[in-house]
Design a protein around this nucleic acid. Structure first.
Lengths: 226, 226
DNA sequence: GTCTATAGGAGGATAGAC
DNA sequence: GTCTATCCTCCTATAGAC
């Protein structure tokens, strides 16, 4: 059983230099996403990223060739998680459950990944020019798939005849708001900062309004299900 | 007949220098709001504003002391129009009409003043640090007034018992989306750019879903009123 | 009111010692 | 892998001629 190459310690997944690299890269990206979210690409200085990640500026350049490279890495990363919440919208689920789960998942994302959400919002405000054609295409396709699911529900009479694309955007916009416009949301609920209780209240309000708004009326008499 | 001072021409409302000033200031502000909306405060260069407004850079400094001054002027201007759409939410109106009018007005604003909307969105993403205490206070109060109107409707049983603050934000977020995330919205409806037809479709979808979602169920059988 | 010129400083990026 | 020193560009802002 003994082998001449590395005894058996396949446990340590990486060499020490690799670990340093991983740690520093992640520190840079964490700092960068925050800054890009607040000040945009052009407004963010490499010096700021360096300071916020606790590294000298030259080290940032050691790990990432340019500012664009940092930004592109973050965009790529973001889009990898893009499909997550959408997966709840599946044709084989009942609209009520699927929609409830989707809204809950998106609100949860807004709460726990507010910075990433704002980073993306900033990129869209910028005009989305950093999104590659491939990435745009991916977004379009993934969205369209889910719109078709909603269309199916409408055809089957499981949903009132509402334009699926705009219905979809309603859920999207509403949940995103709590991340991107957190200051406004906090102001509206009358607090300095949103807490988990506020997100729960938001979820109740959104889910109940949307469900009532899109489910066919006959079923709506049983709306206050547990 | 030569007279030394201008004879009787009180017609021109302003002296010629005043007119030049008005024209140039407005050109600067128009260019600036566009750039600030896309790239944020830190990301926007005075040079760009000068180029976009067709003026030499030094002239921009002649009309506005600093970049902050331009930004502050735009913020102030924006907040003056802040209350407009909210005025539809009045206690003496029926919820159905008030909500319909509010959504229509906000969507109309999103369509016709998308840049201003995006400028504001950018400021919020920035953290809202350019809003003065007075301005924040104004926003808080004006919002709270309208939330109270919705609360009143709920108490009177004219609306289902939904948290008025979150209900309010739903309308806000949904309508704002079509300005701030116009690229995403266009992608979702499958076009290169949103047209007026898309806004009309959006309005139908949002109004019908929201009304159905918030009006008490008994009344909802008559939902397809003219 | 307009515009050229420039001061004074900050930013992105790199070279090269350690 | 780390960091100092530095190049060069570009920016905000101002001075002052026209």
């Amino acid at each position: 059983m003994p082998r001449e190459k590395a005894p058996d310690k396949r446990r340590t997944p990486k060499a020490p230099e690799e670990r340093i690299r991983a740690r520093n890269e992640s520190a840079i990206l964490r700092a960068a996403v925050e800054l890009f979210a607040r000040k945009g690409f052009d407004g963010t200085r490499i010096t700021e990223i360096a300071e916020a990640s606790g590294l000298p500026k030259a080290n940032v350049y050691y790990y990432f060739e340019t500012k664009e490279a940092i930004y592109a890495t973050l965009i790529e990363r973001l889009l990898q998680g893009w499909d997550k919440a959408l997966e709840h919208i599946r044709a084989d689920r009942e609209p009520r459950e699927a929609i409830t789960a989707y809204i809950a998942a998106k609100l949860d994302y807004s709460r726990r990944h507010a910075t990433e959400s704002r980073f993306f919002a900033n990129e869209i405000l910028r005009g989305g020019g950093f999104l590659s054609r491939v990435q745009r295409r991916h977004m379009r396709e993934i969205t369209h798939e889910r719109v078709e699911v909603v269309e199916g529900w409408v055809r089957e009479g499981k949903l009132r005849p509402v334009d699926p694309r705009h219905f979809f955007m309603m859920m999207w916009a509403t949940t995103q708001f709590y991340a991107d416009f957190a200051e406004v949301a906090a102001m509206t609920v009358g607090k300095a900062k949103l807490g988990i209780a506020d997100f729960n209240e938001a979820q109740d309000a959104i889910v109940s309004t949307i469900l009532q708004g899109c489910l066919p009326c006959p079923a709506s008499s049983a709306v206050e299900v547990s």
